[in-house]
Amino acid sequence: MAPAVIIQNLQKSYGNTKAVKDVSFQVEPGEIFGLLGPNGAGKTTTIRCLCTLAMPDAGKIEVSGISVINNPKQARQRIGYVAQEVALDKILTGRELLQLQAALYHLPGKFGKERIDAMIDTLGLQEYADQKSGTYSGGIRKRLDLAAGLLHKPDLLVLDEPTVGLDIESRVVMWDILRQLRDAGTTVLLTSHYLEEVDALADRVAIIDQGVVIASGTPSQLKDRVGGDRVTLRIREFSPMEEAEKAKDMLKSLPFVQEVIINNAQGNSLNLVVTPQNDALIVIQQALQAAGLPTFGIAQSRPSLDDVYLAATGKTLMDAELAAVSSRDLKAEKKQSMK
């Protein structure tokens, strides 16, 4: 069976901006694949190339072995695309939108009708289907959009930032739906700049930064590759700087501690990278006690995808996010998305 998606050495520029410099990854049939990266990393451009909305400058894109570039129509038949911004015609009802969608994918009349009913039912849209979509809340709009993307039973569902702007509960519902889809055999490719989302959902991940894939694998593999466990330590709820410094110096001398960082934003708590070992927390607490320092809170965890990102780029996803937001030219992006 051909891979669900092959993207090789994809490049795409808009004017002088190299949105995608070199992106390669492969999605296997029946998995949820997450494309993680900060805003402006090139995720959406990659998706636009995959979904035949943008012509790549260079590179290869295949969906189930079909070249998207040479056979766009056949590829489109296999892809269900759910864009980041839900585009509904607010004067149409949900059902009317789905009817239009069914015709655009050439579903035969009776089958189309069955599919529409099935999707309305599956996504819990019964009480909304015959109201104008202009009256919908954000979550319902997104669900209708998802119904439209799934109507023609695509092999591959592509979602660009599926939960941006949704409340927590809607997000969890969306996750559930995507997992059920995957379990029913649909391949799901989603982009996200939410770590938890990709961590919770994706079977495999590619982390993308500044138009380049910087790491890929299962979340677990990626974390293992970064190595070490993370320990978050609070001496007091708000520790004075001198105490934090003192503890830092002391903890650094422990053999299994690789790194200690004082987090000013979190009341001078200490973030440690440690070689995994069972009694790490006990040893740390004993050492603190011996030095006459209290322990307000201590927790050990595996590295997160953020640590993976940090290790590869030298900045946290949050920092990259903030930098991207401040350097963003929204007008230019709007223009780009219309091209």
Binding site: F111, T122, I140, M174, A184
Partner: peptide, 22 residues
């Protein structure tokens, strides 16, 4: 899709595909 609505928890997404090209 807030509290007002949560879809049936055990929805089934049938896996058979639409026949190629009508």
């Amino acid at each position: 899709m807030s509290s007002t609505l949560s879809p049936k928890s055990n929805v089934s997404f049938e896996s058979e595909k639409v026949s190629e090209g009508s």
